[in-house]
Nucleic acid binder design. Structure first.
Ligand SMILES: [Mn+2]
Ligand SMILES: [Mn+2]
Ligand SMILES: [Mn+2]
Ligand SMILES: [Mn+2]
Lengths: 219, 219
DNA sequence: TTTAATATTTAGGTTTGCCTAAAAAATAAT
DNA sequence: ATTATTTTTTAGGCAAACCTAAATATTAAA
């Protein structure tokens, strides 16, 4: 029905529109898809002709209902496959994104739905991102990052904002995964770093770059 | 590494070269891939430039070692995914081919190998076709078809030559699946049809079209 | 407000994979 | 051995998705 490229564009635009009212800009889309702005302009025209998004020159773009639906279905598939790779095939959470980028384009509603129930209808993917159900509904994240937490607060890791293999491997090395318990012991004004106790054992300093990319739930 | 199209061409040529010494012809490839002969000529030139096959104008084509390797790896993925869909997700054997045609192009050696062991290193796919191991080795079929069997011989269904949904659904209706036991009771010279007893119960007449498409093992 | 910087679009071109129509080669029939 | 038929290739073109370079809009700075 839709090409890989179209689905990737819609997914990128959906992501970039989260929160912001103005929609996604050409440059932002180009950067996210690792392509050039000129190519994006081309594609926006085509997607607009297919009524998947609203495009007025020099303004940003916003997805139509149809465009949004396709984007969310693709996200659903992506995250379900990530769960499959981790839960069933024993992949690490830093290895799954690349493969899921391919698997998310497989077209078979039956496959997606069967996979969903085979996995036990998971609500979150290995990075803590919510998985849309077959109707496209899924919860908005409670966007608290570790950075925002006060001294002496205890938190549970619920997700990662940056899902790059580099970041995930570093977290692995620190012993920080989904569900890990963190105790904020000190906040350094100078560089935004935080001293935390991980799972009641090791004591570590986390840079601001790390703290801003960890979603947590206050205990 | 290789495009979907390239993999599909190599797979088709590999299939068409089974048995025949002369390699695959342009028209045969076009028919199998549901494309036009002119397009095939185009592509053969490109694949030849990439040393994936040997192409001399107006002669047929034969895969090089490299081309054969890619073809077999694609077949391996295709058949493993078919097993996954049937064994784990409960698909019918007539539904899996179409989806496997997409999944076979996912590029991740780790995924393929993990899937293989997750499935218990199956030797045959849901249609009885042998699955290449990770080195590309797999047994040649013992190509006995039901048609060749004598009266009073007892056989076990081991595979299907035609894997179209139409044929598979018809077999399903007849109660014939992999492992079914057939007893040849009569052979009709006139139209090549055979009267058989299926699993020691029902008595049915199978047309020649059915008999030539069933691989069996003599008991 | 005029100028400078940045963002976006247009123009023109490439590659991949496909098509139809026409030419050429190979094979079959007379 | 010609002639007819079939198979295959070539020629010319098209759509998707990308590119660079140049033009135009928008936004920020002076
Ligand atoms: Mn991912
Ligand atoms: Mn994820
Ligand atoms: Mn198949
Ligand atoms: Mn099969």
């Amino acid at each position: 029905m839709y090409t890989f490229t179209e689905e990737n564009y819609l997914k990128a635009i959906h992501f970039l529109s989260q929160g912001s009212e103005k929609g996604a800009t050409t440059n932002a889309i180009a950067e996210r898809l690792e392509t050039k702005a000129a190519s994006v302009s081309d594609m926006l025209k085509k997607l607009s002709d297919k009524d998947l998004l609203i495009y007025k020159k020099y303004q940003g773009v916003k997805l139509t209902a149809k465009g949004k639906e396709i984007a969310i279905k693709t996200v659903r598939k992506h995250r379900l496959w990530e769960v499959f790779l981790v839960d069933k095939l024993g992949f690490g959470w830093e290895e799954v994104h690349e493969v899921a980028e391919q698997l998310e384009h497989i077209q078979s509603v039956k496959l997606t739905d069967r996979l969903d129930s085979y996995l036990g209808n998971p609500k979150y993917d290995p990075h803590g991102d919510p998985i849309p159900d077959d109707a496209g509904n899924f919860p908005k994240r409670t966007e608290t990052t570790l950075e925002e937490c006060e001294i002496n607060s205890e938190v549970i890791i619920r997700g990662v904002k940056d899902t790059s293999p580099e970041f995930l491997r570093y977290l692995e090395k620190l012993g920080i995964g989904l569900g890990a318990k963190l105790m904020v012991e000190e906040k350094e004004e100078f560089d935004g770093s935080m001293r935390v106790k991980i799972n009641s054992t090791s004591d570590t300093s986390l840079s601001a770059a790390v703290c801003t990319n960890l979603f947590v739930k206050q205990l």
